[in-house]
Design a protein around this nucleic acid. Structure first.
Length: 109
DNA sequence: TTTCTGACTCGAA
DNA sequence: CTTCGAGCCAGAA
């Protein structure tokens, strides 16, 4: 694949797809890995458009471990349930023990 | 074509 | 401690 032909969104999708089961990462981490540290918003926006793609958007949260995007899922707690079904503990829209399940692309890839 | 809005983050006041 | 502004890019109206 020619990176030049890939839009920012596509790159985000590729990275998001590599998030391991039971792990999570942040919008900013992905943006930084792609060389656009200030484009965290774009990552989130990309997730919004990732409904058709095979992208585990529920594994991407904000840097505080908050499920800021849960509102964009069908149910009110669908995102949380998806995470919990992967072994991720979520309380009050916030991921517990985030540090231990955090997956940083610039560190893992 | 222009305008607006967002699943973010950081730094400054 | 809290609040606010700026930077980034794509897609819809």
């Amino acid at each position: 694949m020619k990176p030049e032909t890939l839009s920012f969104f596509d790159k985000v999708y590729q990275v998001a797809r590599q998030i391991p089961y039971g792990k999570v990462t942040s919008y900013g981490a992905i943006a930084t890995y792609l060389g656009a540290a200030k484009s965290a918003r774009m990552v989130g926006y990309a997730m919004n458009a990732s409904h058709n793609k095979d992208v585990p958007a529920h594994r991407v949260v904000n840097k505080k471990g908050l499920l800021t995007g849960k509102h964009h899922f069908d149910g009110t707690n669908l995102m949380q349930q998806l995470l919990e079904s992967e072994g991720v503990k979520v309380v009050n829209n916030q991921i517990q023990n985030l540090k231990s399940i955090y997956w940083d692309p610039s560190q893992e890839l």
